Computed example of a mutant assay.
Amino acid sequence: MEWIPLALTFVTAVCFHRSQGCTCMTSKDLADYYCDDYTELILRGEVLNSTVVESNYPWADIVSYAFEITSVIKAEGNSSRLVEGKSIVDINANTNEAMCGTRLTLGVEYVIAFGASLHINLCNWKRPVLDLQPSDLELSEDAFFNCAARSCRPTADNSLECCRRARLGEVSCLHYPFCYTELDGEMTHCCAILTDGTVECVDYPGLLLKK
């Protein structure tokens, strides 16, 4: 599941892209992908060159882009090994838009969000750095972005409620009743005991001031 901002509904946070037979739903906000458990990699870098890998069927041709990494914004799960120790990686994309194909422009610096591989299509979040919104640019340069600040809200009893959205859109919320704030007031740590007896904790920036 992924963290979602409480101030926005999922409907207002997404837009639709349609290209011939391909329709996908992508968020306008890089933070939505950063805080999404299904997004394992977010890379910033420049497209150096491209090579077309032809198949027996023209609609199945693949373009392989040499992508020079300037910053690894997020690297989690098994996909982190795809970029470990590398400065240049190959990003593959289908060329046929009806098959959700997409293209990158040579010489342009992008921020791109990936799932479990370095294959992209029309539905991947990708933006030229020069076109990034200020909030997206700030996140791409922030090594300590806190998803709890977007997805959690203080409650009247000095505890915390955080909500997550599953892949199909269902929203579930968890109450964190056990909270304490550091002496300097910069961070509050909240925990909850789950039904299986395990403890789950989140770090919330600042004091628990009910909004």
Rank of each mutant, 00 (worst) to 15 (best):
M1G: 14
E2G: 12
L6D: 07
T9R: 12
T12C: 11
C15A: 10
C15S: 13
F16P: 03
R18V: 14
S19Y: 09
Q20S: 13
G21R: 10
C22I: 02
C24R: 07
C24G: 11
M25K: 13
T26A: 12
S27I: 00
D29L: 11
D29V: 09
Y34I: 06
Y34K: 01
Y34Q: 04
C35N: 09
D36G: 03
D36A: 11
Y38L: 12
Y38S: 15
E40I: 03
L43A: 10
R44M: 13
G45P: 00
E46N: 13
L48R: 12
N49A: 12
S55V: 02
S55G: 15
P58W: 09
W59F: 13
W59H: 12
D61Y: 11
I62P: 01
V63C: 09
S64K: 15
F67T: 04
V72E: 15
K74R: 13
A75G: 13
E76I: 10
N78W: 08
S80K: 14
V83D: 09
G85I: 07
I88M: 00
N94Q: 08
N96S: 14
R103H: 14
V108L: 00
V108W: 03
V108F: 05
E109H: 02
Y110G: 00
V111Y: 09
V111F: 06
I112W: 06
I112G: 01
I120F: 06
N124G: 04
N124Y: 07
K126I: 01
P128I: 08
P128F: 08
L130V: 14
Q133D: 14
P134D: 04
P134I: 03
P134Q: 00
S135Y: 06
D136Y: 06
L137R: 13
L139V: 00
A143V: 12
A143D: 15
F145C: 06
C147F: 05
A148F: 12
A148P: 03
A149P: 02
C152Q: 11
C152S: 12
D157Y: 11
C162P: 04
C162L: 06
C162M: 08
C162G: 04
C163E: 06
C163T: 08
G169Y: 02
G169K: 01
C173S: 08
C173K: 08
L174N: 13
L174C: 02
C179W: 05
Y180H: 14
D184A: 06
G185I: 06
G185L: 07
E186V: 11
T188C: 08
H189D: 08
C190V: 09
G197C: 01
V199C: 05
V199R: 14
C201A: 07
C201V: 09
C201R: 04
Y204S: 06
Y204E: 07
P205I: 02
P205R: 13
G206A: 08
G206L: 03
L208E: 03
K210C: 11
K210E: 14
